[in-house]
Computed example of a mutant assay.
Amino acid sequence: MKKHDHKTLSNKFVHFLGIALLMVSIFTSSVLQPMMTASAASDISPQYTSNSSGTSPTNAWTIPGQSTVINPQGGDASNGWDKNSS
């Protein structure tokens, strides 16, 4: 194989690889990303409570021994808050 032929094949491979990566990127952003994105219910409004520690969601829970980690409860307008506390 001539040196010129090897360089041409190498350039074609790099060109093909670039196009393949571009196509995978487009596929991922347009097809897979919407399927992997979570959305929250926008029709339930949180209420907030203020105390000496600050302001936090009223419907929230903390991990025993870690009072600075505040986890809001989930839920939706039709079912209300899920009342999970752990």
Rank of each mutant, 00 (worst) to 15 (best):
H6V: 14
H6N: 06
H6C: 13
T8H: 11
L9R: 12
S10H: 03
N11G: 12
K12G: 14
F13T: 05
V14K: 04
V14I: 03
H15F: 10
L17E: 14
I19E: 12
A20I: 04
A20S: 12
L22Q: 13
L22I: 14
M23N: 08
V24S: 06
S25C: 11
S25R: 00
I26H: 02
F27D: 09
T28P: 00
S29G: 12
S29V: 10
S30Q: 14
V31M: 10
V31N: 12
Q33M: 09
Q33H: 00
P34D: 01
P34G: 04
P34C: 09
M35E: 11
M36R: 06
T37L: 03
A41C: 15
A41N: 13
S42D: 13
D43G: 06
I44Y: 00
S45A: 15
Q47T: 15
Y48D: 10
Y48R: 03
S50G: 10
N51E: 09
S52R: 11
S53E: 04
S53D: 02
T55A: 11
S56L: 01
S56Q: 08
S56P: 01
S56C: 00
P57D: 08
A60Q: 05
A60E: 06
W61I: 00
T62N: 14
T62I: 05
I63W: 10
P64R: 03
P64L: 04
G65S: 07
Q66K: 12
Q66G: 00
S67T: 04
S67P: 06
I70F: 08
N71Q: 08
N71W: 02
Q73W: 03
Q73A: 04
Q73F: 03
G74E: 10
G74N: 07
G74P: 00
G75V: 07
D76K: 08
A77K: 07
S78Y: 03
G80M: 08
W81H: 05
W81G: 02
D82R: 07
N84M: 03
N84K: 08
S85R: 07
S85H: 13
S85G: 15
S86G: 13
